[in-house]
Design a protein around this nucleic acid. Sequence first.
DNA 1: TATGAATGAGCCTTCATTCAT
DNA 2: CATGAATGAAGGCTCATTCAT
Lengths: 218, 218, 218, 218
Amino acid sequence: MSITASPPLEHAGIHKRERRKQARPQELLDAALTLFVEKGFAATKVEDVAALAGVSKGTLFLYFSSKEDLFKAVIRSNLADHFPVWNQEFDEFQGTTVEMLHYAMQSWWERIGNTTASGITKLVTSEASNFPDVVQFYEVEVMRPGHELFKKILQRGIDNGEFRAFDTDNAVYSLVSVIAFLSMWKHSLSPCCTSSMLDPVIFLRNHVNALMHGWLHT
Amino acid sequence: MSITASPPLEHAGIHKRERRKQARPQELLDAALTLFVEKGFAATKVEDVAALAGVSKGTLFLYFSSKEDLFKAVIRSNLADHFPVWNQEFDEFQGTTVEMLHYAMQSWWERIGNTTASGITKLVTSEASNFPDVVQFYEVEVMRPGHELFKKILQRGIDNGEFRAFDTDNAVYSLVSVIAFLSMWKHSLSPCCTSSMLDPVIFLRNHVNALMHGWLHT
Amino acid sequence: MSITASPPLEHAGIHKRERRKQARPQELLDAALTLFVEKGFAATKVEDVAALAGVSKGTLFLYFSSKEDLFKAVIRSNLADHFPVWNQEFDEFQGTTVEMLHYAMQSWWERIGNTTASGITKLVTSEASNFPDVVQFYEVEVMRPGHELFKKILQRGIDNGEFRAFDTDNAVYSLVSVIAFLSMWKHSLSPCCTSSMLDPVIFLRNHVNALMHGWLHT
Amino acid sequence: MSITASPPLEHAGIHKRERRKQARPQELLDAALTLFVEKGFAATKVEDVAALAGVSKGTLFLYFSSKEDLFKAVIRSNLADHFPVWNQEFDEFQGTTVEMLHYAMQSWWERIGNTTASGITKLVTSEASNFPDVVQFYEVEVMRPGHELFKKILQRGIDNGEFRAFDTDNAVYSLVSVIAFLSMWKHSLSPCCTSSMLDPVIFLRNHVNALMHGWLHT
DNA sequence: TATGAATGAGCCTTCATTCAT
DNA sequence: CATGAATGAAGGCTCATTCAT
């Protein structure tokens, strides 16, 4: 639940104060994620992050040495944790590759996309040029593993004869692009666009279906 | 129509200085677009915008009452000019709808995507929640007309029997999402990601091909 | 009587912990003196003082109500203990006044100058205008007794015919100034000046000799 | 008079505003010197420096990139300018070396000691360990040239037979120490010590006399 | 007593905005 | 119209001080 899997604390030795101390970093990271995603990095004041986490300005600096450090920690703590799980799910998956692709997209939406966590994508995109090293981190820890995972899925489909052979590298971007798009949509456009309804679940199903009919043997 | 190019004005009785005077606002808008896209709104200093436009800080405020006003003007001035042309091209287009879709995507890349203009998309997305009214613009001036244009194209395909009947509203997003994705890619990730090669022209062709095979009659 | 040395207490019924408790204030004063002299009052953090004394930040405030209070206590506790001894030594001194002056200067260097205690002089000087009342202490407790002691020595020399009559008040400053100078030298310049060698013992001997014999040919 | 010897500005082209701009740095340096000497570096707020110079906080940062930069500029601008003059005066001096020494000390007092500039010595001493590079600068630009100048004077006295041969290196410190002492006295002790009168001019004369003639009966 | 997590006033620094020239 | 020196509100960060444990 927290970053550092913490042993049960209910026993005698741990006081309320101490329990707060251990929870603080995550509370601050959550608050920061919310505000960074909502207003952008520069437009968010550390004081507001602290307030949202229920602490004072000074407390934040007990746990993060600077606003930028907080930014990196936010990105780090919300990424990359899912890939081990997903890679394992991929290895153990029993159904067809078609089902697998649908499952992958839908579970992304449920676990990430429909969550504040997808704001990270928007955040990294928005602030990329101001924090090149963060982008490096994002590329290595998120983009590349994600790309590889999708590529493996597509290759599985080709290998077992479901799909005809095609350029999987480019095809991955056809999947990734809607993930990026829905991240933007959720955190940027949709809150402001009263019209323009879009049901992500249906959209994802249709999108994958359309692509796959193009990839299937005729 | 590009950022730096200006149509020859020597024929009229306009002196060089006066020409500069008239060009000022546009030069400032171009400079602002460049920097806002590159660094974000908050991280861009008006002084740098002025410097890039070749004028002093004070001059900028002769034309735009505030930094926020400049931001909105940047968005406004870079929107919506293309749709009349595209709508006309659509009406006059002679080939198949498949060809038409490829043409639409490729010409978007050539005229917008591969240009500073696509930075608008990134910009609006990045700063959306701080400027809700700007998103309103964008929705009315860009997203909605774009959606309608693609929808008309898809409907044309259905009407003339090329495509089977399908949910065109959602299908449009399968096209729009890659446009959004490539805008982000060009202005955020690709400048920082040394690896992860992506050829937009090939990607767009493959993407449309895959989708259409899904949309075609089997 | 030196800063760190503490007389053996084991004989009494005082336990180790209690001994620590009684030693706390002095340990804090020693730590504060060290850091105040080294970095100045403002640049010294109370947390560092506490850490150097081996206690927590909170403990420091159990003994001193504020950083300023700590500062004043540092000055107070390091002053004035030497003059009774020196006055007695003066009264009992058997040799010539020339010998006496040399002895006074050399023993100042050994007992004070070459010790953290001379940092007090630097400290008072550096922070004087921010703590005028501290300077009052210092004047009454150190400068005035010191001046009187030197004046008595010089007067002794005049009285017993070793010296010709001269303005002893001003002459005292010729002695005091090198004491002040060596205090500064030890705690400010010499740690930073790799070149500029100065041997205080030799310098003090030469200085006193010069004052007494002069540089001219007789 | 100012740092960058400025051409006469009274002619037409220079407006009031521009004249201020050229005067600002020196005004700020003067204000900073005053406050740094009076309260120390850390205890001085840049806002107070700006206020004393008659400008706003922001203006100060137009001319100095940081408080530390201002500190270094203060030290730099008030030092080292006198040595060329003094070296020349030494070369052209006609009288005896005894007269020369008296002249050197008295003119130091008039031109530096009795001025805010002597506060620099106190300032460097107080903040030495926090700004080691400043001390390096001070040693090279001030202490060393000063030492050499005095040494040349003493050597002149030995060479022309006025003085007997003695250790000039150490003797220089007998002169330098009173310079340091009077700097401290003026800026630290004397403002707080209502008693303890000290007339620097008389003290300097007596000090030099004593060093040269000694206190003993001949 | 001792601890150290928490606080928040205060300071350095930035930068959008103004205005005298 | 254009300039750029000047402003001052705002925000990141520090650190003396408090207080629950």
